[in-house]
Nucleic acid binder design. Structure first.
Lengths: 259, 259
DNA sequence: CGCACAATTGAAGCAGCTCAAAATAAGTGG
DNA sequence: CCACTTATTTTGAGCTGCTTCAATTGTGCG
């Protein structure tokens, strides 16, 4: 696998430079690739996986089922995401990860990650940073579910997805594919399917977005951001901490914050 | 500061053994101590702190204010918690951390943590693990806010707080002090103050808990757990991953999972 | 073509909200 | 230790954003 197409490297380079040696090591991790169908668990609740899953293609989600059978989707995982480093350090899964579409995933043994983080603390911190961003997204979702109206929540999620997909090259202009059902959207936002449907109509009706099948086009980015009370800083895109700059001089990540 | 009383060491030992040399290093981190009053920001939104805060005494919380002025509290930070490792690797704060009571906190410079994680990858992973547990708690709160009823949410939170306080020795029998207002509880659970009040009365009325001022006594632990749909596994208390066992043989953390 | 799933619409219900005011408790200065 | 002020808890009552239930329409696909 060539450097350029290794999504793990691209992922880590968002936050700091990656040396050639590090790249070589990272390339070595992606040898076991699997295809998984839609609506399958990549990792089940309570499991103790022995490898991490890196999503190469497709959409997945973290979710939990509560008493009464309701489901809460806690995050959307898109290509480039390592979706269970959690299992690496915590052992037993306290939630499940399931596919929303057919997926292609790379399996990375925990032992390989352990070796890597032992010998290359900087890479360890880079992975760590990724999990901190995951946590920032959890927090933002919590804020939305707890304190924002349905319309604001939906708008906010669309803004987030747009930026995240853009970062991995999965948008064209102001459009992107969001191949998930309204029921799934509801489970992610803590809303009923019916209300998701009505809310999407509202957002379409006011000219903020256009929906055609699974394709979503953002007609009025500023308006959607306003509607969604959206401040992208929690995604920590295209930024490095002082600490990381202090470590790796010379490289500057491409900034694209003109949002 | 003696080893036994260093809450950072106690915190890390929950998940894996800490060598004597590591303990010495960790002791060296706790030299700057500060007292902070109630309702003060330990770290403000958008700041770029240069040190982490370890809470020695008192309660704090992560929070965010949304458009319209509503507040969502995203986590409760209790003694022993390092409450912004986030800032270490991500630089700019995407939320604020404020005190709920007067607090005593230790300030740990980012540079010290950087050195530590560079030279002692195992300690780095231990800190990382802590942030992953934080994330697990975020997820669980999200599930509650999104999919559980008010009474279930309140009961769940009480269960969680009980276990977390117990782990740092801040409970006596089935009682603990929870010196936060009902308004703050509401901000944490995405509920109104009025509804929190009525829900607490419901939980008292059915004999699950007793409230006397800031002191909460759990009368019926099993019942409260049932009411709160509470499964403590997300707290990852008293457990180590295979990976960590693989690394440090010989030591076994005390297990106390008879819950 | 027809099945199965997904989106849409209508209508009624309710969990939790808001507003407003009263009752307690917790400070605080004298 | 009291009198006064301020914060918190508690209660009542009306309201609403979202849910639930149930049915209809659309759509992808073997």
């Amino acid at each position: 696998m060539s450097k350029a197409s290794n999504p793990l490297i691209r992922h880590l380079e968002q936050f700091g430079s990656v040396s050639d040696e590090e790249k070589r090591l990272l390339d070595g991790l992606l040898n076991r690739i699997e295809e998984v169908g839609r609506d399958q668990d990549l990792v089940g609740y309570g499991e103790q996986p022995s490898d991490c899953k890196l999503i190469l293609e497709g959409f997945a989600c973290r979710y939990k089922i509560v008493e009464g059978g309701k489901r809460q989707i806690m995050s959307l995982q898109i290509p480039g995401d390592i979706c269970d480093l959690q299992g690496f350090l915590l052992g037993r899964m306290d939630h499940a990860i399931g596919t929303l579409t057919p997926c292609r995933v790379a399996l990375i043994p925990h032992t390989a990650i352990l070796d890597l983080t032992d010998t290359h603390p900087r890479l360890g911190r880079a992975l760590w940073r990724g999990t901190l961003i995951d946590a920032a997204v959890f927090r933002e979702w919590m804020v939305g579910i707890g304190r924002r109206s349905a319309a604001t929540r939906v708008a906010h999620l669309l803004c987030e997805i747009k930026l995240r997909l853009e970062a991995v090259g999965l948008t064209e202009d102001d459009s992107f594919d969001l191949p998930i059902t309204q029921a799934e959207l509801g489970d992610a936002l803590g809303l009923s399917t019916v209300h998701i449907n009505r809310t999407l109509q509202e957002l379409s009706g006011t000219g903020l977005i256009v929906i055609r099948g699974a394709k979503i086009t953002i007609r009025d980015w500023q308006g959607l951001k306003r509607k969604g009370d959206f401040d992208p800083s929690y995604l920590h895109q295209g930024r490095r901490s002082d600490i990381e700059r202090h470590l790796s001089r010379g490289h500057a990540p491409s900034q694209s914050d003109a949002l």
